[in-house]
Design a protein around this nucleic acid. Structure first.
Length: 435
RNA sequence: GGAGAGAUGGCUGAGUGGUUUAAGGCACACGCCUGGAAAGCGUGCGUAGGUAACACUACCGUGAGUUCAAAUCUCACUCUCUCCGCCA
């Protein structure tokens, strides 16, 4: 959520920044200002009336104490109709408040001044590239073929269980998935200073609203019902990312400055309806309804926000570097950024079988946008309450990383080499085709 | 699912209609005292809106209601704890 004071004082600046994102929501600004004005006018009036009422009520109390009942009754008559006017104005202020907030929740974050202007992913500048594309003396295979030959994923039976867009990892596939998760958690907790958490996989709507997934993208997530009670549908949602529960851990709290920065990492499955994404049925593991991810979350002082984002990006890159994968980092342009983000870097790993780069990480600083929505604050040494910056980054997403590993390390004989960091977890240095 | 108890500021804990616009304690900050510290003493110390600054307004789980006046009375809901049942 944006600061209402900023909208009030610099509406044109806010409008202009929103337009750089291609956000049609800038049209809400006039409505917000109008509702805000109505709210403030109603409040100013009703507060004066309440002050009067409080004063007279106190006088009545004093008169009753002195047994001056007649005078007390006279005073009561005096304030009799005050209550009705207060009720009406209270109602007006509340209605204006609700109208304002509903629109405020629909405004995306403002891009940081350093974010390049652009409309689509085509306009995202390359930041850097690491390693080079692996070269093969043979035609590299797609992960789908490799998975089938190595019996790592049973695509057909997953469909039988849950429909398209789900994966059934088998044998070494399941082990490789688990090894990757554990390797990444170990690296981030041991060497990058993150505290591991294992959050709930179902959350209430306030968490989705807190990080900015609601209300705009409400139709993209899985709501769950308890038993056959359809009335309970929508009380809980399957998390689309660990960001949803983990960023909300300290919602509605006032942290002390000494606690910052708070750094969490979490492994969770992620559930996404991907409504509107044409042909989820894209063969393979690249776009699925459920995938695993190790997520990084930081809550930091505003002045540290962007330095911490660089560090988080380096932490995610370290995973790919240590696994010997070729990747590139791009910065998202204004038009391609997510709803809550002020500045985002994506990491894309090279998938030789696809002949393309796959997004495996997105590292965003949401500044105080989410903190405002969650009412998450910290108290400075000077005793002032401020909103911290909240950062999230994938470190990294599985499925696609799995794809890149297989396609990068495939050999002419159909086997796949396991890079050294994963060997202790798997107790093998290669996967060999099954009979 | 059944029965009971409860929800007050960072914590603890008083408060059953009007000097409570939340007592006392702990913790915290500053000062005095001290060679230094502890103890002791003094001052300050919730959140948000509002103001140049005051004033003022709201908030005692949430939402409605009664009243001139609600932490306090009424109703509904939510959550927590204890016991029972079912269950991995």
């Amino acid at each position: 959520m944006l600061d209402i004071k900023l909208i009030r004082e610099k509406p044109d600046f806010v409008r202009q920044r929103l337009v750089t994102r291609g956000a049609w929501e800038e049209q809400f600004i006039d409505g917000i200002l109008q509702a805000d004005d109505q709210r403030r006018k109603a409040l100013a009036e009703v507060e004066t009336l309440k002050a009067t009422r409080n004063r007279v009520s106190k006088e009545i109390g004093a008169l009753m104490g002195q047994k001056k009942l007649a005078e007390a009754e006279a005073k009561k008559a005096e304030t009799k109709d005050l209550g009705d006017r207060i009720a009406v104005l209270d109602q007006q202020a509340k209605a204006a408040d609700a109208t304002r907030d509903e629109m405020m929740l629909r405004l995306p974050n403002l891009p940081h001044a350093s974010v390049p202007l652009g409309q689509t992913a085509e306009d995202n500048p390359l930041v850097r590239s690491h390693g080079g594309k692996p070269e093969f003396a043979f035609q590299p295979k797609s992960h789908v073929e490799l998975c089938e030959r190595l019996k790592l994923v049973d695509f057909a039976r997953a469909v039988k269980l849950s429909g398209s867009g789900f994966l059934l990892y088998t044998n070494w596939g399941a082990k490789l998935e688990r090894a990757l998760i554990q390797y990444m958690l170990d690296l981030h907790t041991r060497e990058h200073g993150y505290t591991e958490v294992a959050p709930p996989l179902m959350v209430g709507p306030q968490c989705l609203e807190g990080v900015g997934q609601f209300p705009k993208f409400k139709d993209q997530y899985y709501g769950v019902a308890e038993g056959n009670d359809a009335a309970k549908l929508g009380h809980l949602y399957l998390i689309p990312t660990a960001e949803t529960p983990v960023a909300n851990i300290h919602r509605e709290e006032i942290l002390s400055e000494r606690q910052l920065p708070i750094c969490y990492c979490a492994y969770t499955p992620c559930f996404r309806g991907e409504a509107g994404a044409a042909g989820v049925g894209t063969r393979g593991m690249i776009r699925v309804h459920q995938f695993d991810k190790v997520e990084l979350i930081k809550i930091v002082k505003p002045e540290d926000g962007y330095a911490e984002q660089e560090k988080m990006l380096a932490h995610a890159e370290r995973i790919l570097q240590s696994l010997g994968l070729h990747y590139r980092v791009v910065q998202l342009c204004t038009g391609d950024m997510g709803f809550a983000s002020a500045k985002t870097f994506d990491i894309e790993v090279w998938a030789a079988g696809q002949g393309s780069y796959l997004e495996v990480s997105s590292v965003s600083n949401c500044e105080d946008f989410q903190a405002r929505r969650m009412n998450l604050r910290f108290k400075t040494e000077a005793g002032e309450n401020k909103f911290p910056h909240v950062l999230n980054g994938s470190g990294t997403a599985l499925a696609r990383l799995f794809v890149a590993l297989l396609e990068t390390y495939q050999q002419a004989d159909g086997s796949v080499l396991i890079p050294p960091p994963l060997q202790p977890y798997l107790q093998t240095d290669r996967l060999i085709p099954q009979a």
